[in-house]
Design a binder for these strands. Structure first.
Length: 519
RNA sequence: GCUCCGAUGGUGUAGUCCGGUUAAGCAUUUCGCCCUCUCAAGGCGACGAUCCCGGGUUCAAAUCCCGGUCGGAGCACCA
């Protein structure tokens, strides 16, 4: 062994090849553009159950998409089941419209859960397990006020309620019978008040919230916290692998302890980092003011990282899925650039996007000595997507950016039309005169897009850019590009993806406008 | 403050558990070339990482050990 090990690596390899020729060939080639999640521990084919547990307290965003895709992908990978569970245990935050919004978001992502349920469906069960925990001496009723609790928790000291918890048992009945009101009493887990893990310092399991719940109305006032509901529900629902974002990491001990005390099955819990794009926060705290102050149009504004916004921007669910999978389930906290998502999206929409002509800030070009012409324009350069006819008399419009580069005597080609020679151009007046040259394809002359005076509509492209620069809202985050498009755009329905030649991919919004997706 | 977690090219990651098939794979970005009546897509190629730093163990360390640094998270009657 010593001898072999001390040989140079090349020699070791030679010897290895002689003795065991297959050993060095086991590495599989990585398929391009295909990303997979790593295998799961303790996962049996057909037996994996995952769950996506959003709280219906807002519109779903890219962060939800990441969690949902991971949950679904693992369920699929092991031919298991995916549960969608609305984690609706705080009537202060939840609204009916958000349940629907989340459902819509998922269906847009093509994620179809096998089971759909609400944590609130199991409220009586949750109460039952709460009582059980108290009876076993693993939880107690605490009557202290919040400041006291906070104070003692930070010092690692128990309160009198805890100390007396074995003697004072009647409070338990009282809290379940509705004797107490909001802020008067809570149920706490009997953890370890001086644990290093602060999540174990007797966290709250139930509290009283006298608000109307979107599903249960006013019937219930004693609501479990996430810390209690999540492990119980996961265990009861048969979840084998529970994924959550990494800020819950320290709660793992609690999660397991609760189930252990109750002698319930403990699922595998795994964490992944939150997903947020650079310059595009996901938090309601940052987004809501934008909407309230009308800086953006609403939750479906194409600048927003909400699923509705991203859909409107022209991102495809398939691109989002690939993107999420390419991220993996790492714990490292990073903010990927949206450019990666765009790259995935581009590859998907390229093959379904018709190529159209649009010019912004149009300059009127009169063409001398030319006859009326009809061009047949292919809808896609390499894929059979039909074609359309465009009539051209002797006036076309080109964009002023292109016009600026023109000089007298210069020869250019109007894409798919013919070559012209510039005889006069005035950017200020937005006009120019050119001569017809010929219709021979030449390699070294500029090719620019145009629209025919005979066949145009006024059109607008909304171009989203960075929402925030640093910490500040970018007031120029929605650029408006106005110009002319060929009238063919008006025949396309909302949501159609197109590519305006030399401009970029856009999603058709209506007869008058489109939203710029990306280059 | 205390506790936990992370750190691989410009960016996102694979590999780290079980040290040697790889001085590092993939994707993206940027740049070339080919293709193309688009500044798109496709094809080919290039640039780019002494794997946070310092020390140790070992014939051999991105991978193991110790000590730092930087970044993030938790410490709610939110989830």
């Amino acid at each position: 062994m010593e001898q072999i090990n001390s040989l140079p690596i090349e020699r070791q390899r030679e010897l290895l090849l002689q003795k065991c020729p297959t050993y060095l060939e086991t590495k599989k080639a990585v398929e391009k553009n295909e990303f997979h999640l790593p295998p799961l521990l303790n996962a049996k084919h057909g037996k994996v159950v995952t769950r996506f547990p959003p709280e219906p307290n807002g519109y779903p965003h890219i962060g939800h998409a990441k969690a949902a895709v991971i949950d679904e992908e693992y369920a699929k990978m092991y031919a298991g089941k995916l549960i969608l569970r609305f984690d609706d245990t705080n009537p202060l935050n939840e609204k009916l419209e958000y349940y629907d919004a989340i459902m819509e978001g998922l269906s847009w992502l093509n994620i179809v859960p096998d089971i759909i349920k609400n944590t609130s469906d199991d409220i009586h069960l949750l109460h039952f397990y709460g009582k059980k925990l108290i009876n076993k001496g693993n939880a107690y009723i605490c009557l202290c006020d919040q400041n006291t609790i906070h104070h003692l928790r930070s010092k690692g000291l128990p309160c009198q309620c805890r100390i007396d918890s074995d003697k004072v048992l009647e409070n338990s009945d009282k809290i379940f019978n509705g004797y107490y009101h909001q802020n008067e009493a809570i149920i706490r887990f009997k953890g370890n008040m001086n644990s290093d893990n602060t999540a174990m310092r007797d966290p709250t399991l139930f509290r009283i919230i006298e608000n109307t719940h979107p599903l249960l109305g006013d019937k219930i006032i004693l609501w479990p916290t996430y810390d209690f509901a999540a492990p119980i529900e996961d265990s009861l629902d048969g979840v084998t692998h529970a994924f959550r974002t990494k800020e819950y990491e320290l709660r793992n001990e609690l999660y397991q302890q609760i189930l252990k005390n109750l002698e319930m099955r403990i699922p595998e819990v795994l964490e992944f980092s939150r997903l947020e794009f650079e310059g595009l926060p996901v938090s309601k705290r940052k987004l809501k003011p934008l909407i309230e102050e009308k800086k953006v149009e609403g939750w479906s504004d194409p600048r927003l990282p909400t699923l509705m916004g991203m859909k409107r921007r022209g991102f495809t669910p398939e691109a989002i899925r690939r993107f999420v999978l390419s991220l993996g389930i790492t714990l490292s906290e990073t903010k990927p650039s949206i450019g990666v998502l765009e790259a995935f999206n581009r590859k998907i929409i390229d093959s379904i996007s018709k190529r159209l002509l649009f010019v912004n800030d149009p300059v009127k070009i009169t063409i001398k000595n030319v006859k009326q012409k009809e061009v047949v324009f292919k809808n896609h350069p390499s894929i059979e997507m039909g074609s359309r006819k465009i009539y051209v008399n002797n006036v076309v419009f080109i964009s002023s950016q292109d016009a600026e580069k023109l000089k007298n005597g210069m020869e250019i080609r109007l894409i798919e039309l013919y070559n012209i020679k510039v005889s006069y151009i005035d950017i200020e007046k937005k006009e120019g005169i050119v001569e017809y040259r010929d219709n021979i394809l030449k390699e070294n002359i500029p090719k620019i897009q145009w629209v025919s005076e005979e066949d145009l509509v006024k059109y607008m492209i909304l171009k989203p850019t960075k929402l925030f620069i640093g910490d500040r809202f970018n007031h120029n985050s929605l650029e408006v590009i106005e110009g002319f498009a060929e009238s063919f755009v008006t025949t396309l329905s909302t949501n159609t993806m197109v590519q305006f030649i030399r401009l970029g991919f856009c999603r058709i919004e209506d007869n008058k406008s489109a939203i710029f997706t990306h280059k």
